[in-house]
């Protein structure tokens, strides 16, 4: 089993759009896939029409694997299950602070899923804190969406620095460009600059596209309603590239 997190300190960069479409393509490729919606906003649960859990369970999340299993819901697509978000996830950081060895806790819980899943995908909330650090430890790779703007560039460098400072393996970080508008010269130049500095940037680029925005209306992965559109092909290509990186490890 591999664990892949889609992470950025910034909101609105396309983490959830990426998680939903990658989880979909992973499942389509035959991998038993579990998407865990860690964002209390529950956007990825929303796209899969899965209602959030009624009972509060985040305290238990890090206690017992059985409680986690009970939250699993089948999506409408083969091989793809989801753990929906819950508002009480907001308290994660607080709970994690009170736990021993808190950073490795998530990793241990996820290990229990090995028998059932080939891939666990974590859709993370935009923050840095205890939960993020638990995610950094638990994940084999961290997929980081970067919009080619100066602000996003700065956020990405902050993450890099944080990894360095806290001695997390920087090899885990897999950045890629998203919401790209190549008609803007700023976007073009920044991409080139960043690629030169960080060769680990993935080749695939997710374009800015109304089809991605429309996911909210259709409440489904892009492939379900815009099969031959560039955004859909881009997500499919992104999955191929990511899966070859995951497999190589």
């Amino acid at each position: 089993m591999r664990t892949l997190a889609v992470y950025s300190m910034k909101g609105g960069v396309g983490k959830t759009a990426t998680s939903v479409n990658l989880a979909y393509w992973a499942a389509q490729s035959g991998l038993k896939t579990l998407l865990i919606d860690l964002d209390p906003q529950g956007a990825s649960s929303f796209y899969f029409r899965v209602k959030p859990a009624k009972k509060s369970w985040s305290k238990r999340f890090f206690k017992a694997y059985e409680h986690l299993l009970k939250q699993i819901k089948a999506s409408d697509y083969e091989n793809l299950d989801i753990i929906p978000a819950h508002l009480s996830f907001r308290h994660f950081d607080v709970i994690l602070k009170g736990l021993n060895k808190r950073k490795s806790r998530l990793q241990k819980v996820l290990k229990g899923l090995k028998k059932e899943y080939d891939l666990v995908l974590l859709d993370c909330p935009p923050s840095i804190g205890q939960l993020s650090e638990a995610v950094f430890m638990a994940s084999d790779q961290l997929l980081v969406p970067v919009i080619p703007t100066t602000l996003s560039e700065r956020t990405f460098e902050q993450l890099h620095d944080f990894f360095k400072q806290e001695r997390y393996s920087r090899k885990k970080i897999l950045p890629f460009f998203t919401l790209v508008q190549n008609q803007k010269s700023l976007h073009k130049n920044l991409q080139e600059e960043l690629r030169a500095k960080y060769p680990e940037f993935l080749k695939t680029v997710i374009p800015f596209s109304a089809d991605v925005e429309n996911m909210g209306e259709y409440r489904a992965p892009v492939d379900q309603f815009a099969r031959n559109k560039p955004a859909n092909l881009a997500y499919q290509a992104l999955w191929k590239e990511v899966s070859s990186q995951l497999g190589a490890k």
Binding site: F48, R49, V50, K51, A74, D76, R219
Partner: peptide
């Protein structure tokens, strides 16, 4: 066939 809820989830 699929039985769906009010949000269209199967």
């Amino acid at each position: 066939w699929a039985c769906r809820d009010d949000e269209g989830k199967i």
